[in-house]
Design a protein around this nucleic acid. Sequence first.
DNA 1: CGTTTTCTGGTACATTTGTCCCATTCGTGC
DNA 2: GCACGAATGGGACAAATGTACCAGAAAACG
Lengths: 196, 196
Amino acid sequence: MGDPTSGDGQPPDDTAADGPTLTPKGEARRRALLDGVLTVLEAGGPSAVTHRAVARAAGVPVSAATYYFAGRDDLLRAALRHATTDWARSFDRLERASLRDLAETLVRYAVTERGAARAQYELLFTAMRDESLREDAELWYSSLEHVLSRAGVPPDRVDVAALAVDGLIVRMLWRGEPGTAAATERVLRQVVGPLS
Amino acid sequence: MGDPTSGDGQPPDDTAADGPTLTPKGEARRRALLDGVLTVLEAGGPSAVTHRAVARAAGVPVSAATYYFAGRDDLLRAALRHATTDWARSFDRLERASLRDLAETLVRYAVTERGAARAQYELLFTAMRDESLREDAELWYSSLEHVLSRAGVPPDRVDVAALAVDGLIVRMLWRGEPGTAAATERVLRQVVGPLS
DNA sequence: CGTTTTCTGGTACATTTGTCCCATTCGTGC
DNA sequence: GCACGAATGGGACAAATGTACCAGAAAACG
């Protein structure tokens, strides 16, 4: 630790949060690793997420995984954060959302990209056990509530509607059904209640 | 395979389904192992479910795990089946259910025994990837729909209500809230819709 | 009683895993 | 050009894992 005769193999800084300040180009590799986690998760479940499997999926050597992420925990942590913020952003992008827009996004999320969505939900469940991931998970749920309220759901119904949409997502992940935006919108209208 | 000079160490038969025909007393050990899976799952997540950890949690030697279950897969399979049928039964026991009864069961399920319930849901998600577990998972969801319909939810609303209750359960698992039967019943009434 | 089957618990071993280490290459400043 | 830190990739190794084996205890059954 006090003898830097040569490169000591440690990602320079990257303290905590969201600062990509110190990785100009290898940031792509980081992202590839994170996507690799989802790929592996999708194919083999949580217990298949190993340094080696993730590295193989990302097409990088094993040591890259330990270079960018201190340990398996950091890897999973970062993958959850990556996946949830990604999707939360895509919800937030629906500024003045209609139920139709929301339905389209849901179908894209839970049917078209089913594998990734399943993986994210699996991570979400994992986060139940880890207090330090609570925050990221809440982000997901709160952005769901926000998009519903922007879609015209009255305030005193938003949380109940969010429950139902969450359940709807889980069902879509299970059965791939409803599989079209039109059908999803129909269910959404039932779910959201008399008003809209 | 053709030289039984002594005991060959294999659980006699137990073909498929639910026949405890061949294990008079060591059945308790089987159950202990299955509970051990939930315990480990609760504490350390799916990737912590190893033969050794489960055996330690159940207070039995490692070889017992391999004696009663051919491999890790069978162990997980059986644990899911065990957990879901257990809870499905407890729903089915509510013959002429009121929403209040259902609320009480939900609170007992998702708050009091939160750890076990989380573990079961984690297994449920695992089952998404394994076609052969589909059946057991469907049992869970269909018994949820049945109890709702017995509670007076009109037929054309049952599936939407089931969605919402599923979402409600997930939220209870996350936040431990609503945490009382009364509060849960109130949410249920909103969720189930105008009729009841 | 004896015998046969179920069950026990300890051990052994090949494989996979996380993680560290180091020599080499790449990229960007002077 | 050169030098220096960031990034790479391959190898090594201790620890943990799945699983098989086997000698003996317990129980079931005649």
